[in-house]
């Protein structure tokens, strides 16, 4: 049991896609103008990650090595399209604010990366857990970055006002703030890692 739990924790902490593996930077920077957008993007990616990990690990022996990349891409793209259709149907507002970044989950290196390094070698159940862990780690990181940017930029947190907007620094919601906030957060993560060792 502990081993199973370890797979999830591994995804959240030791192999956190954003702060440790440094993968999937585009949606990380592009969608985190607010905490809620970050969370939405994280969960959307987690959904695709879990589904594709499951299917790929189920089919891993039926896919010859030489064609594994195209096969994996087809599987991942299918789940992304499923997600796109579902979001259009039931979550139109979130779909609108995440825009282009939903179809771009297909090319998120995390999804293909986990398929190659984990799902292709492990049992279906473990792969689902890995997808869950990595997905949660990604969601947490995006929510954190979104929260920092939203708070510094507009004085709000999840849409609730913390301090007046005029004290906020708009730059954090704009493009440069995304890079700078993420850079500082990764530096912080590095410091914590060194201290923990």
């Amino acid at each position: 049991m502990n081993k199973k739990l370890a797979i999830i924790v591994n995804g959240i902490l030791h192999e956190n896609p954003t702060f440790v593996l440094l993968l999937g930077m585009c949606p990380t920077l592009g969608t985190t103008t607010s905490a809620i957008n970050g969370l939405g993007m994280g969960l959307a990616t987690a959904f695709v990650l879990i589904c594709s990990n499951l299917v790929i690990s189920l089919l891993k022996n039926l896919i010859p090595d030489k064609v594994h990349i195209p096969a994996y891409i087809v599987i991942i793209a299918s789940f992304v399209t499923v997600l796109q259709l579902c979001m259009q149907a039931w979550l139109p507002e979130l779909n609108q604010s995440l825009g282009l970044f939903i179809p771009l989950i297909v090319v998120n290196c995390i999804v293909l990366g986990r398929a190659e390094t984990f799902a292709a070698k492990n049992s279906p159940f473990d792969s689902v857990l890995d997808g869950l862990g990595i997905g949660l780690g990604f969601s947490l990181a995006l929510t954190l970055l979104g929260a920092v940017r939203e708070l510094l930029g507009s004085g709000q947190l999840f849409g609730y006002s913390i301090f007046p907007e005029t004290y906020g620094s708009l730059i954090f919601i704009l493009a440069p703030g995304a890079f700078i906030a993420l850079g500082l957060l990764i530096a912080l993560a590095n410091t914590l890692k060194t201290k923990a060792q």
């Binding site: 022996n61 896919i63 010859p64 090595d65 030489k66 064609v67 096969a71 087809v74 299918s78």
Partner: peptide
């Protein structure tokens, strides 16, 4: 066992994946 990387298994597997998708 894993399917070998020869032409027929590759073709069959890709067709299968596409059908599934």
């Amino acid at each position: 066992k894993k399917l070998p990387s020869t032409i027929w298994p590759m073709l069959a597997s890709l067709t299968g994946v596409c059908l599934l998708a």
